[in-house]
Simulated scan of single mutants.
Amino acid sequence: MENEFLSKVEDNAAVRAWSEKLQSERGDSLAEGHISELQDFTRVNVVQNELQELRDICASWDEGIKQLFYQSYGDISYLLDVRVDQHLFRALVQFWNSAYKCFTFGEVDLVPTIEEYTTLLRCPKIQVRKTYARVFSSQIFVKKLMSISGMSEPWVTARIQQKGDSKCIPWENLRDLILTHPDERKRVDIFTLSIYGLIIFSKALRHVDEVVIDLFERLEKESHWYQQYWQKRSDL
């Protein structure tokens, strides 16, 4: 920003005015006659995924599967027991600034950091200076889901659904795999994928989005790398 904005914190109106003025002067993105809108309030539907089935599955595991899960993916299962206060959430969301994609409290802007996400996902090797964006094709999505689930291409293809602008797989199909898959490792992987898709990066109710599957496929490789590393350490 210009020097006048560097020495103090400005409110959203001042930042927006500065941004629009600069964009208009440089022809960045605002066309002549464009009217920018910053909503006074953000309305949100607080309906969320029902997680009891995931809790029941986790509770039914024996100690061996639980250890495999914790060694691979850490303690993210605690998210299953986090209770969302809907009244608090409705109050909080009024401070969501949709224009700048952050929470604004008075003169303070807050947004989750890359470091917070990498800690939560136990993936410290993410390149924080690169934006994560990817264009998908149906075939890529199918292959990644086949790799994670261990299921055949016809099985995966038959269960993919279109939700809005993206493809998803229903939670019911993942749940059935967690309960019946003969490979214990796959059951753990699919369970963790469900946590990512239904809690951390939830988009469509009771569905796991293709972007989550792409991200998980990368993180899953990281977890295997850590397992191999610690196994080698223990063998020394």
Rank of each mutant, 00 (worst) to 15 (best):
S60K: 13
K125L: 05
T119Y: 06
I169G: 00
T157F: 00
I200H: 01
R122E: 12
G64L: 04
V46D: 03
L120F: 05
Y73A: 08
F201Y: 13
S138F: 07
A17N: 12
I140V: 12
P154F: 09
I35M: 04
L193G: 02
S152K: 04
T180I: 04
Q162P: 05
P182L: 10
Y73W: 15
L121S: 02
R90K: 12
Q161H: 02
E50L: 04
G150D: 02
F191C: 09
E220M: 08
T42Q: 10
F201T: 12
D189T: 07
I199W: 06
I35Y: 02
R129N: 12
L80K: 06
E20S: 10
L198S: 09
L236R: 11
L80C: 06
V9D: 11
R43E: 10
T42V: 15
F5I: 01
E20A: 14
E4G: 01
S29P: 00
K221M: 05
A31C: 11
L121K: 07
L80Y: 08
R90P: 00
V212I: 10
L88K: 13
V111F: 09
E115M: 06
E217N: 15
D214F: 15
L68K: 13
D214S: 14
I65V: 14
L6E: 08
E32F: 00
E63S: 13
K66I: 10
D209M: 03
R129V: 12
I213R: 01
F89T: 14
L38I: 14
I178Y: 07
A158G: 12
V93Y: 12
M1T: 09
K144V: 13
K186E: 02
E50D: 15
A13K: 15
C168I: 10
D56I: 14
L30Q: 03
V128K: 13
E32C: 03
E217W: 08
R83E: 14
R16I: 14
H87L: 13
I169F: 02
W155M: 08
C102R: 12
K232V: 12
V93G: 00
V142S: 03
S77K: 10
V84P: 00
F191G: 08
S147K: 14
E153C: 03
P154L: 10
Q71H: 08
T113Y: 02
T118I: 15
L79R: 11
S223H: 15
D165A: 11
F69L: 14
Y196M: 13
S36C: 05
R16H: 03
S72V: 01
I126F: 10
S149P: 01
K66Y: 02
T131I: 14
S98A: 13
S7N: 05
W18C: 08
I213Y: 00
I200C: 06
K125E: 08
A99I: 08
Q231M: 08
I200Y: 00
I200F: 00
L38A: 11
F89N: 02
I57D: 04
T104V: 15
T157V: 11
R43G: 05
E222W: 09
I126Y: 05
F89I: 09
V82R: 09
C58Y: 15
Q227D: 08
K101P: 00
F216K: 05
T131Q: 06
S147N: 11
L38G: 01
